[in-house]
Each structure stands twice: as structure tokens, then as C-alpha cells.
């Protein structure tokens, strides 16, 4: 009766012998005869080496499991033998210990395996569809971002018509800022934002009268106060949207003249109350202006610039960010070499 029940379950039961062979406890099955290439009856002894490469591998773990002599079972996981009479047959083996006796059960999985395959197929098709959708979202996000960048670049181009700053200066400001963002471990999208937003720091100068903006000599106190308004004008130009790139541009435009010790303008913000993007731009704007030639001054050697700026770290500049800037000087120099005036 037991043999009949086992036969109905499409499995064979064996027990390991001391000489490494196995004794068949159940009746054999067609597939087991095909697998072993032997006509076996209950009670027959058989060696299982080279019957199946997968089974050989499992028996290494099974023997270790039996040697521990603990109640329990070790499953091989399903495997498919594809060379059995040209068919593909799914099996699973289990090593068991019951009442101190070790057993090896080999089961032909047939329909159970097909069910597993179907379930996994559905799950994986779902994952593949998700991947396709995700890729499409990324593609569209990238297209939107490209359009936002294009608009920002057009804005910059309009501002540069009235500003004496060189195009290479504003490009370097963006690249330096992005390099600092990357060194701070920012997400690539945030670093990409600052690369475009930082060059817009002086965009508000578009609203400053020519008589002040282009005045060759020293500004009067009133003129200087008007000039300071470029921060507020720039913020007004860029603010009020839900576009992260322009929001960052707004913060930078408004706060890039604020100082770490609170002595800056327009709002006299102090320390970390100043948005980090603006603190970054404050550093790279000064550095780039000092090391490059301007109509009113010769370039200053980098070492001298860094010494001067180091003295201002903690008063003008965020000291921690200045250290980060110093730590990436090789990358900063590389950018200077790539984007020359």
C-alpha cells in the first residue's frame, strides 16, 4: 500500500548505505529507470555517482547533512535534466533524517514544476514591464530636463548682453559648483541643477540701469545700494515656479553675496541659514574672478588666491565648503584648462 502511495506521488525513496551506495526502498519509476539506465526493484542497491551531475553536487551537501544526524530535511531545489530520452524532466531531491535513519527522496515534479514556472513567468514578465515603463519615464524626464536647461541657457544669454562677465566665467562657475556638489555626495540630478543654476547668479543685473552697471569708476553709496538689488531682481526673475533648477537658481541669485558671518547682503543671513548652493557659488565666483584676467586687473596666482580666501573662510565663506573646494583643486584646475577665457 505504501509503495502504491509513493508510486502515485511520482517519487522514489532511497537510503544511503555505508559503502556509498543507496538502497531503493520504494518501487522504481520509468523516469528513474531512464535516469539510472538500470532496471531496479525495491531493495536493489545502486550507486548514484554520474547518474546526474546535479544530483552528484547535491549529494555532497546531503552526506554532510546526514552525518549531522539531526531531524530535518535538506532540499536540492528543482532541476531539469534535459538529456533524458530527449525530454526535459524536472526533479527535486530531499535529504531526510527520521528516527535516526537517513533517506534520499527524488521526486519527479511534473505539474508542480509547471505551476512554479508559470508563477515565476508572470512575476518576471511583470518586472520586465516595470523596467520598460521606468525607462520610458526616465527618457521623458530627461527630455523635460533638457527643455528646462535650454530655457535657462536662453535666459543666461539674454543677461549676458548687458553684463561684462565672460561666457567662460559663467560656464566655469557652473562646472566648479557641480564638482563641489559631486564631492559632497549629491544626487547626480542635484549636481546637474547647480551646473545650470550657478551661472545665473548675476542674472538680476539685467534690471540694473546702464549708468550704474557699466560705470567705469567707483560707485557712490546710493549706486552701490542699487547695484545690490541685482540679487533681489534675479530672485524675482527665477522664483515662483515648481522647477527645481529655477528654484535653486533663485536661491543662488538672492544669496550669493551673503557671508558666513552675517555681514553680507541683501538679508544679512548667517551660517547655514544661507542656502548651500549659494554658499558654494560664493566660493567659486570669487576664486574664478581672482585667478582670471579682467579688464580692470591682472590674474592673481592660484596660491595667493587660496591664501587670501583661506583667511576669509569662516567670515566670508563657509569654512567646511572651502575645505571641500580645496580638496578638489585638481578637478578645478582641469576645468580651468578646459574652459579658457
Amino acid at each position: 500500500m505504501l509503495a502504491g502511495a509513493l508510486g502515485a506521488m511520482d517519487l522514489v525513496v532511497l537510503s544511503p548505505e555505508f559503502d556509498g551506495s543507496f538502497r531503493l526502498l520504494s518501487e522504481s519509476a520509468d523516469w528513474f529507470r531512464a535516469l539510472t539506465k538500470e532496471e531496479l526493484k525495491a531493495g536493489s542497491h545502486i550507486r548514484l555517482e554520474e547518474v546526474s551531475d546535479y544530483l552528484d553536487n547535491f549529494l555532497v551537501d546531503a552526506r554532510a547533512f546526514w552525518a549531522r544526524d539531526r531531524i530535518g530535511r535538506l532540499r536540492s531545489g528543482p532541476w531539469v535534466e534535459s538529456a533524458v530520452r530527449g525530454s526535459a524532466w524536472p526533479f527535486e531531491a530531499q535529504a531526510l533524517v527520521r528516527n535516526g535513519v537517513a533517506f534520499l527522496v527524488i521526486e519527479h515534479l511534473s505539474e508542480a514544476y509547471e505551476q512554479q514556472v508559470k508563477l515565476l513567468q508572470v512575476a518576471r514578465n511583470h518586472l520586465l514591464n516595470e523596467e520598460v515603463l521606468e525607462r520610458e519615464v526616465l527618457k521623458r524626464t530627461a527630455a523635460t530636463r533638457q527643455r528646462e536647461e535650454e530655457i535657462a541657457i536662453r535666459l543666461l544669454a539674454a543677461a549676458s548682453m548687458r553684463d561684462a562677465e565672460t561666457g567662460s566665467h559663467v560656464r566655469r562657475i557652473g562646472l566648479f559648483s557641480a564638482a563641489i556638489g559631486a564631492a559632497l555626495g549629491w544626487q547626480p540630478s542635484r549636481s546637474a541643477d547647480i551646473k545650470i543654476a550657478a551661472p545665473m547668479h548675476d542674472i538680476g543685473k539685467i534690471g540694473i540701469p546702464d549708468g550704474i552697471l557699466l560705470k567705469p569708476g567707483r560707485l557712490t553709496d546710493d549706486e552701490y545700494r542699487t547695484m545690490q538689488q541685482h540679487t533681489v531682481i534675479g530672485a524675482r526673475m527665477l522664483g515662483g515656479t515648481d522647477i527645481p533648477l529655477l528654484n535653486m537658481g533663485c536661491e543662488i541669485a538672492l544669496c550669493h553675496h551673503e557671508k558666513w558671518d552675517g555681514s553680507g547682503y541683501p538679508n544679512g543671513l548667517r551660517g547655514e541659514d544661507i542656502p548651500i548652493a549659494a554658499r558654494i557659488v560664493a566660493i567659486v565666483d570669487v576664486f574664478d574672478a581672482m585667478v582670471h584676467r579682467r579688464v580692470y586687473k591682472a590674474p592673481i596666482p592660484e596660491l595667493e588666491v587660496l591664501e587670501t580666501m583661506a583667511e576669509a573662510a569662516g567670515s566670508h565663506f563657509d569654512p567646511r565648503l572651502f575645505e571641500v573646494f580645496r580638496s578638489i583643486l585638481p578637478a578645478i584646475r582641469e576645468i580651468c584648462g578646459t574652459v579658457e577665457d
Binding site: 546526474s52 528543482p78 534535459s82 538529456a83 524536472p90 514556472v117 513567468q121 518576471r124 514578465n125 520586465l128
Partner: peptide, 12 residues
Amino acid sequence: NYHTTVGVKVDK
């Protein structure tokens, strides 16, 4: 067509 593999398939 994509056919998922469950477990291990051994070919020779």
C-alpha cells in the same frame, strides 16, 4: 519568447 528558468537546467 522569454521563458523563465526555475532552479537549474543541465545541458550537455
